[in-house]
């Protein structure tokens, strides 16, 4: 061991912070090197002299009283206990936010092949275009639905009109047929009544004749008078 290396070992040797082997080597060197022996002796003397400045009483009595610890300070204290510093917390939050923005951007990015070319739209513009397209489609659908409704109403009205006219024609036709049949029936009934009337009249005549015959027979009294009765005709 040379004297230059000893300069670094002196301090350790003086305050007993050398390993046992190093200490032995250092002491052995000092015992054989007059220069280092003097240096070491001087260091020990100076250190011992410093030791005469004894520790004194501070003559102060600091007392801390409880104060309300702000929420974030308490939170950071608790996080610190599990090894998370406020800086790490903020860094983590920012990183998470950036990742969310990045992934959202990627998810919102669209590539469309149209008319032989590729169109790429990024981020919120892609969604906006989709929304605009969607809203246009919805408006078109509503307009077509409205037109369809109007057209259907017209069809219904036309259909009702045609059916009503047809029904009226049928009813008229039926009424005509009914009137015709009624006339025929009335004619037939009239004929029947006439026939029946004629027959009744014939029968009446015959009945009167019979009755006259009967009266006459019943009024015949030999030697007595007899009255004559006749039946009133209609």
């Amino acid at each position: 061991m040379n004297c230059d290396k000893m300069e670094l070992l002196f301090a350790d040797l003086l305050y007993n912070e050398l390993k046992e082997e190093e200490k032995e080597f250092a002491l052995e060197h000092i015992s054989t090197c007059k220069s280092c022996e003097v240096k070491y002796k001087n260091l020990r003397e100076t250190s011992a002299a410093l030791g005469r400045w004894k520790e004194e009483d501070a003559e102060m009595n600091l007392i801390f009283i409880e104060e309300k610890v702000p929420f974030f300070e308490r939170l950071f204290g608790k996080l610190d206990l599990i090894g998370i510093s406020p800086r790490q917390l903020v860094f983590g939050m920012i990183t998470t936010l950036l990742l969310v923005v990045l992934f959202t951007g990627i998810l919102r990015t669209e590539a469309i092949y149209r008319n032989g070319s590729w169109y790429i739209s990024f981020g919120s513009s892609a969604k906006m275009e989709n929304q605009m397209e969607e809203s246009t489609l919805i408006a078109d659908i509503k307009r077509l639905q409205q037109e369809n409704l109007v057209f259907t109403n017209r069809l219904l009205l036309a259909s009702e009109e045609r059916i009503r006219n047809e029904n009226i024609a049928v009813v008229n036709d039926l009424a005509n047929q009914f009137a015709l049949l009624r006339r025929q029936d009335l004619t037939l009934i009239g004929r029947s009544i006439n026939e029946m009337s004629q027959r009744s009249e014939g029968r009446y005549v015959r009945t009167n004749q019979l009755l006259d015959g009967l009266y006459r027979l019943s009024a015949y009294q030999p030697g007595g008078s007899s009255g004559t009765r006749s039946i009133e005709g209609k």
Binding site: E7, L8, F10, A11, D12, K39, K41, N42, L43, R44, E45, T46, S47, A48, A49, L50, G51, R52
Partner: peptide, 29 residues
């Protein structure tokens, strides 16, 4: 360690400059 070594030497020199070497301190070696 180097500052310790040179500091103690500087202190000794300072005290020597003040001529209070062994008269002032009673070494307990």
């Amino acid at each position: 360690k180097s500052r310790m070594y040179y500091g103690l030497n500087a202190l000794r020199k300072a005290l020597a400059e003040l001529e209070i070497d062994k008269e002032v301190f009673q070494y307990e070696l």
